[in-house]
Design a protein around this nucleic acid. Sequence first.
DNA 1: CGAAATCAGGACTTGCTTATCCAAATATAA
DNA 2: TTATATTTGGATAAGCAAGTCCTGATTTCG
Lengths: 155, 155
Amino acid sequence: MISQSAEYSLRAVLCLADAGAALTTQQIALVTRVPAGYLSKVLQNLARAGIVSSQRGLNGGFTLARPPTELTLLEVVAAVEKSRRIGECPLAIPEHAVNLCPLHRRLDAAAEAVERLLHAATIADLVKESKNEPHVHACHANKEPCHARHVALRD
Amino acid sequence: MISQSAEYSLRAVLCLADAGAALTTQQIALVTRVPAGYLSKVLQNLARAGIVSSQRGLNGGFTLARPPTELTLLEVVAAVEKSRRIGECPLAIPEHAVNLCPLHRRLDAAAEAVERLLHAATIADLVKESKNEPHVHACHANKEPCHARHVALRD
DNA sequence: CGAAATCAGGACTTGCTTATCCAAATATAA
DNA sequence: TTATATTTGGATAAGCAAGTCCTGATTTCG
């Protein structure tokens, strides 16, 4: 549905929204269980796309560049991978330049449905949802280190 | 949304349904504009999955193994790639074994929407649709060789 | 039977995504 | 200023999907 990088991006952004403070790559990697070295690249892309802000040096790290209430899942995904919507006939058939054939109309409809769903929820929505479920913490966090981390962050 | 192989599979199956007769790999490749060598692998997979039947030797080729009215797009796609539905927490978090976290619930909903759309149409539906659009022939066919081929097949 | 047509399957290449690792730049704190 | 914590960016490898090519097995036709 979405690439691994896109899933990692969503987990990282959720983690940052939940923390509400700057987190280092290492911290995000622990919480989200994303390989730290690769996460570094993902965060770099998110920074270039203006989704997160980065700060180097001691006490540096990453923060959300925009309020989570105004950041949809789709925006995060779109920042790291191109849309799967079918704009023009993949077979370059002239007659289909405007009107897609029945097959590609269906495939495009599927892509549209996915984007619509991803656009319907903000990062803040998901953070709030997970807070409302007492025994089910956010899936962007792992079990042991996560709890420790959350406690630490809130002290 | 779906893999390249899955798209090739759909084009090939539509082509076979439209022809209503056995077609060789070369013929399907011409009409669908799929690389012949690769299409050979795709058709092999479809045969193993029971979607098409193969016949070797002179006058051999591929035919649909089942009536197109009872073959959904989803069945064709599922024959060549695994479902994107999220059955269990990708982070293996125990609490999420049954209940997915908000993020993965959304991602699974997106996958479900795609599969629902692909399940809602049969191969026969698409063939019929393209026949109803006089100036827009099926996108599984290319322009020049396609017309020639169709004429040839119907003689 | 022999020739031609056709699928089956294996070996291999290519390109992209995912992933690892390290040196360099930069920011903070004491 | 010096030590330390961090991101940045490059080089590189591993894994998988996509694509190519060739040989062998099978079927039909004359």
